[in-house]
């Protein structure tokens, strides 16, 4: 079902900022543990996935846009890279189910609003910014494909 507001994403940002620094790390780790496995259609076809070059660990994403313009985000990252998994999981949970227009409207610097810059360094947070950028770019590609 399509949602009109990126409220899940906003709620996640609010939750992060209300926590103490150490609890923010724990919260990010919870997201890392919640990253869903890829559905078989991607798990069995890794060539469909796009590598997020901005991240220091191997993370791959794929974005679907259905006939009703509803977005689905899929991602995979190794267990040994929990920070990257956490970033991916936030975006998978926060963006899946939104309309394409809503995802495209999410500010590019959303990752910096989580209160993690001082805690884990801006350089690491940039990996998530790269993920968001690539998700938006894939959405634009899907929309173009759908109309051509």
């Amino acid at each position: 079902m399509a949602s009109d507001s990126p409220s899940v994403l906003d709620d996640i940002a609010t939750d992060f900022n209300e926590l103490s620094p150490q609890d923010r790390l724990t919260f990010l780790l919870e997201f890392a543990n919640e990253l869903p496995e890829l559905p078989p259609r991607y798990a069995e076809h890794p060539e469909l996935l796009e590598r997020v070059e901005e991240c220091q660990s191997p993370v791959y994403i794929f974005v679907e846009v259905d006939a009703a313009d509803v977005v689905g985000v899929f991602a995979t990252a190794p267990r040994e890279a929990p920070t990257t998994r956490g970033f991916a999981s936030i975006l998978v949970q926060g963006l899946t189910g939104l309309t394409a227009a809503k995802v495209l409207g999410v500010p590019d610097d959303f990752p910096s609003s989580l209160g993690l810059n001082d805690l884990i360094s801006p350089l690491r947070v940039r990996g998530m910014t790269g993920m968001l950028w690539r998700i938006k770019r894939q959405i634009k590609t899907r929309l173009t494909e759908a109309t051509s």
């Binding site: 724990t26 780790l29 220091q56 660990s57 929990p82 956490g86 884990i120 360094s121 690491r124």
Partner: peptide
């Protein structure tokens, strides 16, 4: 570690975390 959360997933008993970035 390079990954800032790896320590939180489990570490050598008694080990102290030190982060190079921060």
């Amino acid at each position: 570690d390079e990954d800032v959360l790896l320590y939180e997933t489990g570490h050598v008993p008694g080990a102290v975390k030190l982060d190079w970035h921060t």
